[in-house]
């Protein structure tokens, strides 16, 4: 990107910072001085309310063309995790489509999408601040080492997703079977057959229960006086001609 492009980026970032500031101030937060926090890795914005500390890291528009830039930003941000109660990434709306929110969720990081309005697309997880004093903060692991872990983390997340999908499928199967068994047990009970093991009905209710009562009118008009009813009711008894 050339000089002009960089200037546009800076301008966009300023606008995002302004909107996010407005967003938090309108919710009763007070802006905290970042200099006084004395951190080696500095957030773009910091707020306090009732003793809670919130950090916000703004994601630059450049991440749109390079997803690894976003991951790098996330890793930088992760260095701040232990020194605030709530940690957010603020991203332009345009970037929302490339953000893998499950990764953010794993880190307990919230996501603010910034367009005309600021929206909390994903809440941050509240964490107590560790007792380490800010003055002692230092990044012991070089950034490059952190970046090397990304593929492993992503693989682990994919594995967890696979497990969840399998679990959901198993639960769905079990619900169906319990439902079917429960109906059968009930019908047997109505016939006077004692069933010793009572199978509880699943809590999941049908989306729609069809009105199964046959109307007093009987069959629908297309069934009445239909010569096919007689023809079809003999299927299996006749020799197939065609």
């Amino acid at each position: 990107m050339g000089k002009d492009g960089r200037m546009v980026e800076v301008q966009v970032k300023k606008e995002i910072i302004e909107k996010v500031r407005e967003y938090f101030l309108s919710r009763g937060f007070q802006e905290a001085s970042i200099d006084e926090l004395n951190l080696k890795v500095r957030p773009d914005l910091a707020f306090t309310r009732n003793g809670d500390l919130v950090f916000v890291e703004v994601l630059e528009i450049g991440a749109l063309s390079d997803r690894s830039l976003f991951m790098k930003a996330l890793m930088n941000t992760s260095a701040l995790r232990d020194y605030c109660n709530l940690l957010y990434i603020a991203a332009p709306k345009l970037l929302a489509v490339i953000i893998d929110s499950s990764t953010l969720s794993e880190y307990g990081v919230g996501l603010l999408t910034v367009g005309d309005k600021v929206l909390e697309a994903q809440p941050a997880t509240y964490r107590p601040i560790k007792s380490v004093k800010p003055q002692q903060v230092s990044i012991e692991i070089p950034e490059i080492e952190e970046l090397k872990k990304i593929p492993l983390i992503e693989e682990r997340i994919r594995e967890l997703e696979r497990v969840i999908v399998e679990l959901r499928s198993t639960i769905s199967n079990l619900q169906g079977k319990i439902y079917s068994l429960s109906s059968r047990v009930e019908s047997l009970e109505k016939l006077g057959i004692q069933v010793k093991t009572k199978i509880p009905k699943p809590e999941v209710k049908p989306e729609v229960t069809a009105p199964v009562e046959v109307s007093s009118e009987g069959l629908p008009s297309f069934l009445k006086d239909n010569p096919w009813v007689s023809i079809l009711s003999k299927r299996g008894e006749e020799r197939v001609a065609a």
Partner: peptide, 10 residues
């Protein structure tokens, strides 16, 4: 519906 209703189960 007519077909399903009329064709014998067996």
């Amino acid at each position: 519906i007519v077909y399903g209703y009329a064709v014998p189960d067996k």
